[in-house]
Amino acid sequence: MRGNLGKVFELANIQVFRHAATPKSYTDWLGRKLFLALLTVQGLGAFALITLGVIIKKFNFARSVMQPRIRHEINRSGVSLLPMFFFIALALGFLVVGQTVSALAKYGATDYLGSTMVIVIVRELGPLLTAMLVLARVGTANVIELGTARALGEVEALEALGIDPVHYLIVPRVIGMALGIFSLTIYLIIGALASGYLFAFLQDVALTPGDYFKQITEALNWLDFALLALKTMAFGFFIAIVTCYHGLAQPLRLEDVSRVAVRAVTQGVIVCVLIDAVFIVLYLVT
């Protein structure tokens, strides 16, 4: 196998360690796990850089093929998930925001409402919940589709036609997921904040809609918007990288696909939490 994907497949040598005999001591077992984790990080990092390179280098290449594929992925990771996110936004508003608003009103602490909502919904819960849901809905589908395509030899067929599999298969998924998670997070935040107030209003909380939204807008600053965009794009980029990496850089067997999907989701969750941790540091220092 040649080209960009060849570099990814070299990284799949990680399988040798996975299938080796079980170590006899705990320290050996721990050492192997650590080594595997480092190899995975190396593989994912290299795959992310290769994909980024292809996005930049082939930004305008084969537009008649790539644009419909990118539109399809935006639809899959964004538009088609809107009904589900409408429901989740209502649930989040009723269960979390509404209760928080009424609790703060009960203790006369409505002055803290804006900053509480911004920290809980805008900075943390909105982006992370969106990322988790898209990972579950679309990320798993990525692993299964790509794993199956690889097992059926479609990846080799692409290379034989001079089509870069990273460009054709990965780039649309990365762009679609980054834009999808960004857009869905915005809708989720707006929906949760609005339905949250609705719930508080039904509980006769003494807070006018004007005061409620004024407090929230005052608690927001330009950095929240910039970091929210960066964070959601980072979630989308890395979820797509993790799921596509596991879909492609695996042995050519159909029976491996489901096991790999579980591993990809686990690693996707870990990556999202790590990205979130990086952004918490950014929020704290700025």
Binding site: A62, S64, V65, L161, G162, I163, Y168
Partner: peptide
């Protein structure tokens, strides 16, 4: 059509 669409800059009618 895929190789033609991907590799050559042709209009949809030509493809």
């Amino acid at each position: 059509a895929l190789p033609l669409r991907y590799q050559k800059n042709l209009s949809e009618a030509e493809v």
